[in-house]
Design a protein around this nucleic acid. Structure first.
Lengths: 218, 218
DNA sequence: ATTAATATTTAGTCTTATCTAAAAATATTT
DNA sequence: AAATATTTTTAGATAAGACTAAATATTAAT
């Protein structure tokens, strides 16, 4: 059984290992967890002993199959709780993360089974990220940045790259909710900004940077 | 801010201080928490420094006003989560406690406010214990053991003294749910057992011991 | 009122998770 | 390829929460 801290490290390693390189560096882990590299080395030892990661000194870590399973369990819990908070308790997009960080560590398989049922077996969390099933399988539709669409193409908002409060609040303000349909009307050659129409109602301009941080599918 | 462990100690001290003596002994705390007296002394020091209890060496502890408030906050969370588990997630009486022990430590005032709303501002938990409000106020109807009723009197099941799984499962079996109306038909002089009718439907015999562990109000 | 029994505290140790400072290994630059 | 910079690890400390064993207070019993 993993401790809270161990679960957090493992989750971080899993997330980092999705971003390119398969070997995750000590510093990268320390940075995302706001701890010191020395602490990371200590924890890595423990996780390695529990064989949820593979580790060679000075060579970074690779998550094992077992570790991936454990990480996905935590991520499943996190995302299910986020759905609960938004759909049942009327939390806004940007308020859920901190609370879900705590709830994800509650140990009770029955609780998660029943929560899943209660929520109607959701497949995506409020940020549009897929919820792993009990076996750790993830449904993965191809996602593309809004900035990559051609003029007159459209897509459904399914996720964001930047999930800072500031960004999510901005999206709320312009009405670019999860599930919103966005059509690209025009691309301004000067700065790459876009004129878009949201849900066939509102037409706004967004910067290139914003468009790069909104992910859509068709 | 109190840690998980500190919250658990404080909750225990609060509960113990309701049972008669105002000064709670080191051993009593150790017994209910399944720790050793030496560990209790250590923790008592910490809690005393945070002024949630008053402590004099060898004289046991008394919970302070601040401490009472903190304890009631935790108890409020515990009982609200129990309502959620039973009413929304279809947990049975005897499954909720262990999970609520974990959920009660989640730190988010907003979460509890919204949960309370979502549940319709319940006043009692599934065991019939009152839920403190945001200010720590408890609604307290006088409760009496079923064994104390006269023949032909009746009452509503509002709580149990023994909340072990075995007992709760037995109550479920005979249909003596929270809120059930129980009428005492007869008292057997030989062993003090009772013949009762539950919800005007089912008539069963229960032992004196069982009757002493069911609490009712009128 | 001593003695015996019980309760409580102290002293010292362990584990988990963190830190700082220094040493060692790896990467990068010139 | 030697020198420099960066990354990672080691060594040693600290704080929380728990433990055992021994010492000290308090309470009960003769």
């Amino acid at each position: 059984m993993l401790s809270f801290a161990e679960e957090n490290y493992l989750k971080t390693i899993y997330h980092l290992s999705l971003g390119g390189e398969k070997n995750v560096s000590t510093n990268a882990i320390a940075d995302t967890l706001n701890t010191k590299p020395a602490s990371v080395t200590d924890m890595i030892r423990k996780l390695s002993k529990k064989s949820v990661i593979n580790y060679k000194r000075y060579r970074g870590v690779e998550i094992s199959e077992d570790g991936k399973k454990e990480a996905l369990k935590v991520i499943r819990k996190h995302r299910l709780w986020e759905v609960f908070l938004v759909e049942k308790l009327k939390f806004s997009w940007d308020e859920v993360h901190v609370v879900a960080e705590q709830l994800e560590h509650i140990k009770s398989p029955l609780l998660i089974k029943r929560l899943d049922e209660f929520l109607g077996f959701p497949k995506f969390d409020p940020h549009g990220d897929p919820i792993p099933d009990e076996n750790g399988e993830i449904l993965n539709k191809p996602k593309v940045a809004l900035s990559k669409l051609e003029v007159n193409e459209q897509g459904i908002v399914v996720a964001v790259k930047d999930s800072s409060s500031l960004f999510l609040q901005y999206l709320d303000k312009i009405g670019a909710y999860l599930g919103a349909k966005i059509k690209v009307n025009d691309r301004i050659a000067f700065d790459g900004s876009l004129e878009i129409t949201i849900d066939n109602k509102k037409t706004v301009f967004i910067s290139k940077e914003v468009a790069e941080n909104i992910l859509v599918t068709d």
